[in-house]
Computed example of a mutant assay.
Amino acid sequence: MTGRRGFLAGLLATGLAPAPTWADAGSPSYLSAAARPDGRFVLCGIDATLAVAFQIPLPDRGHAAAAHPTRPEAVAFARRPGTFAVVIDCATGTEQTVLQAPRGRHFYGHGAYSQDGRLLFTTENDFEAGRGVVGLWDAARGYARVGEWDSGGIGPHDIKRCPGSDALVVANGGIDTHPDTGRTKLNIPTMRPNLSYLDDGAVIEQIDLPRDMHKNSIRHLAVAPDGTVAFGMQWQGHGPAPALVGLHRFGQEVALMASDPDNLRDMQGYIGSIAIAADGESIAVTSPRGGLVQVFHDGRLQRAHEVADVCGVAAMGDGFALTSGIGTLAQLHGTALRVSTPARLRWDNHLIGL
């Protein structure tokens, strides 16, 4: 470790440095896991111009990350059914600790912090019991495991904190899996996805899809400042998907985004990531299988753009930043898509806004 990071690490060791902030990590706007050309895996910070601010080694392939709300600290999660999560000091580039899923569990690749950053919440599979779990880790005590809650369903994937509170919304995908069978889906005929809202471990609201959509796995979430939850789905049924994007407000009914059959078919039944623009007006969803980004406005599909192997998406002002598995970094504003020269990194599934 050399230069500014080494100097900062020395100050921190002596206790002379002020509490570090994300500015000490190069002021990244986004986090993403990636694979390097040499086959090694890293967690990257990406700045507002989509330049890579840092690369920090990971022990294996990552999926998504959670960013601490105040200090330059991130947790990088293994891809399902991984059992590790790495806590990283992004200012010094050092590994703080490695979380191991409890015996009989694996992570689903996503997590979220409490408002004050004291607790980390992780989505997990209790695979012998076939139930979803939200794990609780105390960041103030070295990420000690301090408890767990029932997620409200099977196969919890994404998890977000609701604005202005410590209530959580969980995407229970409904799909039962077991490490002995890898990523094989064990209960497609009987799967029942839902959105579950949790407050201090209690399910305070739960939203099921219509019965004829019970094979539409709710996977990824984005939450607007007003609490609107956008969710992306992955269709496990035969034939075309009936819908792939929905909206929900606590206490209200689900609204499914309208799209004609051709546009639905183009996404190949698979939403890889979802984001809401900063103005709350537009929703972008990606499909690496279809090589498409679709943007919805006022409940309907507004436009689509081709980006090969695109998956990561996050708000960039009133538009969106995008990443792909072939190294693409892109900006989408209105109808204008600006694609950069592919980086020497293969971006993983998610782009996490800070």
Results as ranks from 00 to 15, higher is better:
residue 7 F to R: 14
residue 9 A to K: 09
residue 13 A to C: 12
residue 14 T to E: 15
residue 14 T to D: 15
residue 17 A to V: 08
residue 17 A to N: 10
residue 18 P to M: 12
residue 19 A to Y: 03
residue 21 T to N: 15
residue 24 D to G: 09
residue 24 D to H: 13
residue 26 G to N: 11
residue 28 P to E: 12
residue 30 Y to F: 14
residue 34 A to P: 11
residue 34 A to R: 01
residue 35 A to G: 15
residue 35 A to P: 06
residue 41 F to Y: 15
residue 43 L to N: 02
residue 45 G to Y: 00
residue 46 I to Q: 03
residue 48 A to C: 11
residue 51 A to T: 07
residue 53 A to D: 07
residue 55 Q to P: 00
residue 60 D to A: 15
residue 64 A to C: 08
residue 66 A to M: 05
residue 66 A to G: 10
residue 67 A to G: 05
residue 77 F to G: 03
residue 78 A to T: 07
residue 80 R to V: 08
residue 84 F to C: 03
residue 87 V to L: 12
residue 91 A to L: 06
residue 91 A to E: 02
residue 91 A to V: 11
residue 93 G to E: 07
residue 93 G to Y: 03
residue 93 G to Q: 07
residue 96 Q to H: 13
residue 98 V to D: 05
residue 99 L to F: 01
residue 102 P to K: 00
residue 106 H to C: 10
residue 108 Y to D: 02
residue 109 G to M: 01
residue 114 S to F: 05
residue 116 D to W: 10
residue 117 G to A: 11
residue 118 R to T: 05
residue 119 L to I: 12
residue 120 L to V: 00
residue 123 T to M: 03
residue 124 E to L: 06
residue 125 N to I: 05
residue 126 D to Y: 02
residue 127 F to R: 07
residue 128 E to Y: 06
residue 128 E to W: 09
residue 132 G to T: 04
residue 137 W to H: 13
residue 139 A to F: 03
residue 141 R to E: 14
residue 144 A to G: 14
residue 148 E to P: 01
residue 148 E to R: 10
residue 149 W to Y: 14
residue 150 D to S: 14
residue 156 P to H: 06
residue 157 H to I: 04
residue 162 C to Y: 09
residue 172 N to I: 09
residue 172 N to W: 01
residue 172 N to H: 05
residue 173 G to C: 12
residue 175 I to F: 10
residue 176 D to I: 01
residue 177 T to G: 00
residue 182 G to M: 13
residue 190 T to I: 02
residue 194 N to C: 12
residue 200 D to N: 11
residue 202 A to F: 09
residue 206 Q to F: 04
residue 208 D to Y: 07
residue 212 D to K: 11
residue 215 K to S: 12
residue 216 N to R: 07
residue 219 R to K: 04
residue 220 H to L: 09
residue 221 L to F: 03
residue 231 F to N: 02
residue 240 P to D: 15
residue 245 V to T: 14
residue 248 H to W: 13
residue 250 F to I: 06
residue 250 F to A: 15
residue 251 G to P: 02
residue 252 Q to L: 10
residue 257 M to Q: 11
residue 260 D to Y: 01
residue 261 P to R: 10
residue 264 L to C: 04
residue 264 L to P: 06
residue 267 M to L: 15
residue 267 M to Y: 06
residue 270 Y to L: 02
residue 272 G to P: 08
residue 272 G to N: 00
residue 276 I to T: 03
residue 277 A to K: 04
residue 280 G to D: 02
residue 281 E to A: 14
residue 284 A to K: 10
residue 286 T to K: 04
residue 292 L to W: 04
residue 293 V to S: 11
residue 293 V to P: 00
residue 299 G to F: 03
residue 301 L to A: 08
residue 302 Q to M: 13
residue 303 R to Y: 10
residue 305 H to Q: 12
residue 307 V to P: 02
residue 310 V to S: 01
residue 313 V to W: 10
residue 315 A to Q: 07
residue 316 M to C: 06
residue 316 M to R: 04
residue 319 G to Q: 05
residue 319 G to A: 14
residue 324 S to Q: 04
residue 325 G to A: 14
residue 325 G to Q: 13
residue 330 A to M: 01
residue 330 A to H: 07
residue 330 A to V: 11
residue 331 Q to T: 12
residue 331 Q to M: 09
residue 332 L to P: 08
residue 335 T to I: 06
residue 335 T to A: 15
residue 337 L to V: 02
residue 339 V to H: 01
residue 341 T to V: 13
residue 343 A to I: 02
residue 343 A to N: 09
residue 349 N to E: 00
residue 353 G to R: 10
